[in-house]
Design a protein around this nucleic acid. Structure first.
Ligand SMILES: [Mn+2]
Ligand SMILES: [Mn+2]
Ligand SMILES: [Zn+2]
Ligand SMILES: [Zn+2]
Lengths: 137, 137
DNA sequence: TATTTATAGATAATATTTTTCTACAAAGAA
DNA sequence: TTCTTTGTAGAAAAATATTATCTATAAATA
């Protein structure tokens, strides 16, 4: 979090309270929130902060390589402060998005180069199923 | 294409020229067009057709199981008349979306169940890279 | 023929995200 | 400290993709 100030300074960006709070919140959660969810979560502490600030900030954080964007097929984006490429799973019943821990699929990139003439750089992998909580009900 | 008429009749849906043309176009192409691209492609033959009709028709086709929706991370959806679950690759330079032929990743669903408590039903897998044409330039 | 039903197209509405504008505050220079 | 520059928050408007509403029409049905 200290190198955060350094990184912002390097890019001539200001580490404002709003930016700091949004990044800290994303770092603290595994819920993969949308812009709206970030906005609601920080509203108690930042009642004057606008949704546009959330959007502008996550965009800044993405450009800095501090956050990645997930597109699980909803009508909005979700954000993740874990910038390593890792797979996610979406509960099709309640909508929650979880990490799949310890599962590594990086070998898929080179594997798939046998089936295409593309130069493959990365991939996005989303699983869909029913979460433990929804399996009960 | 004959069972198409039967299927529509079963569901009390009318196989209108617009619907037929949209489905036929999707069947004929491997370009994974967006609604806008479908609209533009059919405009010469259907100059009065509205974009709303394209949206309503692809939705209908999806409900019938004749078309699937792709979300490669752009600001819009793309559509595919190949409804089998198959992986795609996106050129990050020119934006084209191609099938990855013959590569099967269905085993991933059960494989990933070892790493999560979810009941896994399906997945979406998108690769990103540079297409042969863009590698040249 | 008369009537019902589905739908194309026009238009308005919705939702998400981006842009514009302005006042302000932090940082830097004098 | 004062002056000046620069970056940004927030408000509001705009842009974009998609969906819903409404009506005339044409096909299907009675
Ligand atoms: Mn994650
Ligand atoms: Mn395809
Ligand atoms: Zn659930
Ligand atoms: Zn390309």
């Amino acid at each position: 979090m200290d190198n955060l100030a350094t990184l912002f300074k390097e890019k001539n960006l200001k580490l404002t309270p709003q930016r700091y709070a949004i990044y800290k919140f994303l770092k603290s959660t595994k819920s993969h929130p949308s812009a709206e969810m970030i906005y609601e979560a920080l509203r108690p502490d930042f009642p004057t902060m606008s949704l546009a600030t959330v959007y502008k900030t996550v965009k800044t954080l993405i450009e800095l390589g501090l956050v990645q964007e997930l597109n699980v097929g909803e009508d909005n984006f979700r954000f993740d402060a874990n910038v390593a490429n890792h797979p996610h799973i979406v509960c099709t019943k309640c909508g929650r998005v979880d990490d799949i821990e310890d599962a590594v699929f990086e070998h898929l990139n080179s594997e798939v180069e046998n089936y295409t003439n593309y130069k493959v750089n990365t991939h996005k992998l989303y699983f869909y199923g029913i979460c433990p909580k929804c399996q009960g009900s």
